[in-house]
């Protein structure tokens, strides 16, 4: 008997389909179609696909999902793969990287980073810092700061002195006016983030730990 190409396992969260990662893709498709059509499941069930060490293009992934979902009662909730392309890996490294800019971001200048950025110096009016991740200014932030520029909504903006003209996180924009007494009064100990209601808001620095616990990567402190 030939090797099983599709292993099915039931878990609390639904079914896990473990797909062989050594056979030809066409064989896998064939086997999956057969398994899916002969299965007799009552009601709706969530399915996770585990691809192992097989790399699939987006189109191929969609094809497999479509096959699994074709009978109508199975829904693919997740696709796991142990491999990614070098390109994807590079992108990930970039966005997880923390970059440092030493100097003053002056009027008309734009400083960009794929991940987080630390600016050691001031950001002057009309100067702009744009980051895929969070922005930390060790100096006066008096210009424009755009954090999470590629959609990372968890990003925050912190500055030693927080007095920007514009605050942007993800695709939200806030024009800072004098109508924010809380920001003005706490400009030396404040950060900006997107709150649960999806609005940019401001809190004192000691709240970062509660609001963005994942920012902290160092354990301990005793």
């Amino acid at each position: 008997m030939s090797k099983q190409l599709v292993h099915i396992k039931g878990t609390k969260e639904g079914l896990v389909l473990r797909l062989d990662d050594q056979c030809a893709y066409a064989e896998l498709v064939e086997e999956l179609e057969r398994k899916v059509s002969e299965g007799s499941i009552d009601g709706k069930v969530d399915v996770q696909l585990h691809l192992g060490n097989r790399y699939l293009s987006n189109a191929q992934q969609e094809e497999l999902i479509a096959i699994v979902q074709s009978p109508g009662n199975m829904h693919v909730s997740k696709v796991h793969s142990d491999v990614i392309t070098i390109e994807e890996s590079n992108e990930r490294v970039l966005t997880e990287q923390r970059e440092t800019y030493v100097g003053i971001v002056r009027s008309g200048q734009i400083i960009k980073a794929d991940g987080d950025i630390v600016v050691i110096g001031d950001v002057n009016p009309n100067g702009k810092v744009e980051a895929g991740g969070s922005i930390f200014v060790l100096g006066n932030l008096r210009g424009i700061a755009h954090a999470g520029a590629n959609g990372e909504k968890e990003s925050i903006i912190v500055a030693s002195h927080f007095e920007p003209t514009h605050v942007l996180i993800d695709n939200l924009i806030e024009v800072m006016s004098n109508e924010k007494p809380f920001v003005k009064e706490n400009s030396d100990q404040i950060f900006a983030y997107i709150n649960r209601d999806g609005i940019i808001s401001y809190e004192r620095l000691q709240e970062v730990r509660k609001i963005r616990p994942l920012l902290s990567t160092v354990k301990g402190g005793s």
Binding site: G103, R106, S107, G108, P125, N126
Partner: peptide
Amino acid sequence: VRDADRIIGLLE
């Protein structure tokens, strides 16, 4: 002063 800031950025 703003324009000076811009020019200083270019000079740097």
